Amino acid sequence: MPPQDVSDAPTVTPRVLADRVARGDDVTVLDLRDRDEVEAWRIAGPNVAVEQVPYARFVQAQVTGDVADLVADVDEPVVVVCAVGEASAEVANALADAGVDATHLADGMEGWARLITAVEATTDAGTLVQYDRPSSGCLSYLLVAGDEAVVVDPLRAFTDRYARDASERGASIVYAIDTHVHADHVSGVRAVARGTDAQPVLPEGARERGLTYGARPLAAGETLQFGDAELRAVGLPGHTSEMTGVEFGDVVLVGDSVFVDGVARPDLEAQLAADTDAATEALAERLHRTVTDTLASLAPGTRLFPGHREPGVARADDGTFSTTVEGVHRLLDVLGRDRDAFVDAVTAGSPPPQNYERIIDVNLGREAVDDETAFELELGPNNCAVD
């Protein structure tokens, strides 16, 4: 059939859709991708319903004039989604012509993956900006104290955003820090450093894991001065052997140790060890000590800002994805404070992030990839939390 003009197809932007999902609006997503793609990675939220209907069925239905019949049992309004926003525009147009309340997601799942949002919060040491990537739940941070700033766990796909936001707040970035060697996304530490005067900083143990490029090592207990404040490194091993959080006034950025409603998985680094089971158990035991001895013993009311969030997790009163020491105790009540119970709970198997071995190599500097390849490597579910 001849190509259709879809330039005026009803459209919703990734940002508007993300706002709807965040508010808890009822959202029906009609996903045209193959079932395995949808099952692996989809738009998710507590009030998001996903219906998978292959694009080929719509092509056939347009010939027979039965397009609306394919969504007869689907709640409206409908957001049509595909990989890059081309097939979805065509289908949304056809559905709208048939009287269905339908829009399509601009630029598809690729556009969804290129969205990052920000929320600003105040600490007693300065300003904290939390960035959220809705497609994966990756969280990164800009900390501003006076005329200097630090970026923590930056994503390579958004390096320009951090520098721009720092500049808008009258600050320049002096350090770009990773809390650990990430397995789910390509780090932006080196890209931020190249675009600013920032010094790249990684935990001291990253060198033992094979880090090949020059970065300032950060050991637990060490401090970094910037602006009129300082950061203090907090050792939080478990998800990885070198996991290191940073304390900024009355908050701690905890990386992938605990999340708002869960804990990190301890097996991704272990998957690369000769004895995976033994390495996983050892890291799980270290995670247990991190949670029970380090995080649970922080001053009550200390706010904890994680490196990821799960779909549908509730925001704190200040609009951020964060928890408290009291929240850690609630997690322990669920998982078990006993070492064996905790280890059993966090070592249950779940699929790893896609391409995680190659992403680790990129983040260690053992493989170089261009920006587009880096973006494609990290598409998909996060899977860094215990399932």
Rank of each mutant, 00 (worst) to 15 (best):
A49W: 01
L115K: 02
R33M: 04
T64D: 15
D101G: 05
S88F: 09
A40Q: 11
G99T: 14
Q60C: 04
V129F: 11
V74Q: 14
D69V: 12
H104W: 09
A56S: 15
D34H: 05
A125L: 12
S140W: 03
V48M: 07
G137N: 10
L139K: 08
G126A: 09
P134Q: 09
T123K: 10
A49P: 00
E37S: 15
E51V: 14
L139Q: 13
T28V: 04
D73H: 15
A118F: 03
L128P: 07
L142T: 10
E76C: 09
T103W: 01
L95S: 08
R114K: 15
T127L: 15
Q60F: 09
V129A: 13
T28Q: 14
A94I: 10
N93K: 12
A94M: 12
A98Q: 12
A61N: 05
T28F: 02
G126H: 11
L32H: 02
D97G: 10
V78N: 08
V100M: 11
V144S: 08
P46R: 12
T127K: 11
V119R: 15
E76R: 14
L105Y: 01
R35V: 14
G99S: 05
P54A: 08
V71M: 12
V27H: 01
D31F: 07
V79R: 02
A102T: 01
G137Y: 12
D107Y: 04
G146P: 09
D36G: 04
D124M: 08
Q52H: 14
D36R: 09
D26T: 08
V79N: 03
E86D: 13
S88Q: 06
A89S: 15
V80K: 08
V53E: 07
M109Q: 14
D101S: 13
D36W: 11
L143F: 04
G126I: 12
A87Y: 00
G45K: 00
L128D: 00
V67H: 01
R133G: 00
T103C: 02
A102F: 05
D132M: 02
E90P: 00
A40D: 13
E37Y: 13
V59P: 00
H104T: 09
G65E: 10
V53G: 05
E120R: 14
D31P: 07
D75T: 15
A92W: 01
A89L: 11
V67W: 03
T122V: 12
V67Q: 04
V79P: 00
V91D: 00
T28I: 07
E110C: 01
C138E: 07
L105H: 05
E51I: 10
E39Y: 02
T122H: 08
G111L: 09
D75G: 05
L105R: 11
D124V: 09
L70K: 05
S135A: 15
A106W: 01
D26K: 10
E90I: 01
D132N: 12
G126W: 06
Q60S: 14
L143M: 08
L105P: 04
A44C: 04
A83H: 14
P134S: 06
Q52M: 11
D66V: 07
V71G: 03
N93C: 06
T28D: 09
V27L: 06
V91M: 02
L95M: 10
E37V: 07
D66Q: 14
D34W: 02
I43P: 05
T64G: 03
P54Q: 06
M109V: 09
G108R: 01
